[in-house]
Simulated scan of single mutants.
Amino acid sequence: MRLPSQRHLFDLPEGLVWLNCAYMSPQSRTVGDAGREAIERKASPWRVRPEDFFAESEALRRLFGTLVEADAEGVALIPSVSYGMAVVAANVPVQVGQRLLVLADEFPSNVYPWRELAQRSGGQVVTVRRPRDGDWTQALLAELDERTALIAVPHVHWTDGGLVDLERVGARAREVGAVLAVDGTQSVGALPLSVARVRPDFLVTAGYKWLMGPYSQGYLYVAPRWRDGRPLEHNWLTRGGSEDFARLVDYRDDFQPGARRFDVGERSNFVLVPMALAALRQVLAWGVEDIQTTLRVLTERVARGAREMRLEVAEEHLRGGHLVGIKRSGGYGAEVASRLAARQVFVSVRGDSLRVSPHLYNSEADVDRLLEELDALV
């Protein structure tokens, strides 16, 4: 179902066109209210009870699990994608000569951990070249074989929305015994992703883009076979019996159940967690399927208009419906985005693409405004 405009839920100035959710989502009024109320609570610490260190973070764990069709026991609360990928790198065994697959032009947080892992293990990072036909799935499958220890991929490519069929890639990874680590930052919340169907070993996502939440609140899903792994840090909240503040001096070796051992310290952030809760509740209320259906109409309008200007856009079946990259010979300089911003139209230049990423606060008129301004520039 196509959803009506949700612009009234956001404080977007009249005349401003924000087609840049892949950079950062605007904060809804509800999320902002939750943050302000949380700040007021911190001003009165006697209102913060010991159980509050657990209840809201557990609710957040459950909501994220619902969003990706995963059990809440497998969800850890983390501050960033780099933190989540560091957890993966700390736990996945790699033998000398084994391969770690990444995509060309991948986001750095999904490259640097594997370079370090390869260096200390004797493995090698193999970069899958950008396919000329735009089919990332086939390009990945062609490289994925028994030599592969790990495949670290996004659901959609962050520069232009190029789509990876995670179910097919996941099935092949299991066949060859490779670990599948997915960066869902540019998809979760806008494009359906089911842990039950994809069966990744790990799924990592930031929360401040398509999940509409605050900066520094992210999520890590860990498959059952990895839940007894080694955490990056040893904080008190993740240990057994931590609910009993009076007995914290009785140090324990056991952890809280499930993936909680991978939670970041101070996971019960009394400002960020309430904001993230409000954001996830809104995303679930909209429904990810309906968000995707609605945004696909807008990105297809972008694609048609760009092609009329003889610019290049991937075919619809090869990209996510919420994010589209417009390419031209020679690429774009950063000044193109700056000149559009001066006209109150906001997009990003990433790699060789002008990246356009609408959300429910956008309209067809916003797309037409972008195309009109872009036509004047190119």
Rank of each mutant, 00 (worst) to 15 (best):
Q6E: 10
D11N: 10
V17P: 01
P26H: 06
T30W: 09
V31G: 02
D33N: 14
R36K: 13
E37A: 15
E37K: 15
I39S: 09
K42W: 05
A43Q: 14
A43V: 11
W46C: 13
E51W: 11
R61A: 10
G65W: 07
P79W: 06
A86H: 11
V87K: 08
V92C: 02
V92W: 09
G97N: 12
L100D: 02
P113L: 08
P113E: 07
Q124T: 06
L140K: 11
A142E: 07
E143G: 12
R147P: 07
R147V: 04
A149F: 09
A149T: 07
A149G: 04
G162Y: 05
L163W: 15
V169T: 09
D183A: 04
D183C: 05
D183L: 05
S194C: 09
G207W: 07
Y208M: 11
Y219V: 10
W226G: 01
R247S: 15
D254M: 11
F255G: 07
G258V: 02
A259M: 03
F262D: 10
D263I: 04
G265L: 12
S268P: 05
N269F: 12
V273H: 12
A279F: 00
R281F: 00
R281K: 14
D290L: 02
I291Y: 05
Q292T: 00
T293N: 04
T293H: 04
V297M: 09
A303N: 02
A306D: 08
E308P: 09
R319S: 01
G321E: 03
G321S: 06
V324T: 08
A337K: 14
A342Y: 03
V349Q: 07
S357K: 02
N362Y: 01
S363E: 12
E364F: 12
D366V: 04
E373I: 00
A376H: 13
A376W: 09
A376S: 14
V378G: 10
